[in-house]
């Protein structure tokens, strides 16, 4: 009896333990941890936490006279914005051409086929204008790192430069870096209306799902315009 039970138990234990160990290790290279030392990155790691901290905030700060986020107004001086052609991020050695991108057949955001080029979501907001502009790039190709491989190294305060087709230059400053689960990403927060002049960079992160052939998380770098 023991002859059978012990080996099976042992085998099972080894499987579970080694799976847990192996499972976490490889993904570390491509996963971005939301718990980076920058305090700003912990502000909103997932929608869940954000919602709960917001409501707590409201409850705790009852005496504050004005306490709400204002609605997004149509800008009175509708800034024209620029058509971006080049993205430069010196702190992680990114210097890449930008191509306009639209929708995929499924209605998602299309991305360039190239692993050295990044894509700007053209139906959305032009960089420099009020709203959320979005630039996405690959984290890797089939055989190695791609243009946004080091995006996870960005920290609040880092500078990002966008060049327009007529040579205009915009400077954005990183506000926070957050990994969102793919099936629960805040698409409206990244692409939707805002009173800010924001540029959000997106790439893949997290564990790779072999079956679905895609990464299970998206890394979002939230930046705002600091000078033009």
């Amino acid at each position: 009896m023991r002859r059978v039970v012990y080996p099976i138990t042992l085998g099972f234990l080894v499987f579970v333990v080694s799976f847990q160990l192996l499972k976490d290790e490889p993904s570390e290279e491509t996963r971005v941890l939301s718990n980076s030392p920058e305090p700003t990155t912990t502000q909103a790691e997932t929608i869940d936490q954000k919602v709960s901290t917001q409501s707590e905030d409201v409850l705790q700060s009852a005496p504050i006279e004005k306490n709400y986020d204002p609605a997004v107004m149509a800008p009175s001086d509708a800034a024209e914005g620029i058509v971006p052609v080049r993205l430069t991020i010196p702190s992680i050695d990114v210097d890449a051409p930008v191509a306009p991108q639209g929708y995929t057949e499924q209605g998602g955001m299309a991305v360039p086929n190239s692993v050295t080029e990044v894509g700007w979501f053209e139906p959305g907001t032009k960089p420099g204008a009020t709203g959320n502009s979005v630039i996405a790039g690959h984290v890797d190709g089939r055989n190695g790192p791609a243009v946004f491989y080091d995006l996870k190294e960005l920290k609040a305060g880092d500078s990002i430069y966008v060049e327009g087709k007529d040579g205009e230059k915009l400077t954005y400053t990183v506000q926070r870096v957050v990994a969102h689960p793919l099936d629960n990403s805040p698409i409206r927060e990244l692409f939707g209306p805002t009173n800010k002049k924001a540029l959000n960079l997106i790439t893949c992160t997290g564990p790779y799902d072999d079956e679905a052939q895609e990464y299970t998380e998206r890394l979002a770098v939230y930046t705002t315009l600091s000078s033009s």
């Binding site: 490889p26 290279e29 894509g119 984290v139 089939r142 190695g144 791609a146 998206r218």
Partner: peptide
């Protein structure tokens, strides 16, 4: 807005 997030990786650096 897109209905889905962009697919930005081929898995070449993922185990």
């Amino acid at each position: 807005m897109p209905s889905e997030m962009p697919e930005t990786g081929f898995g070449g650096t993922a185990d």
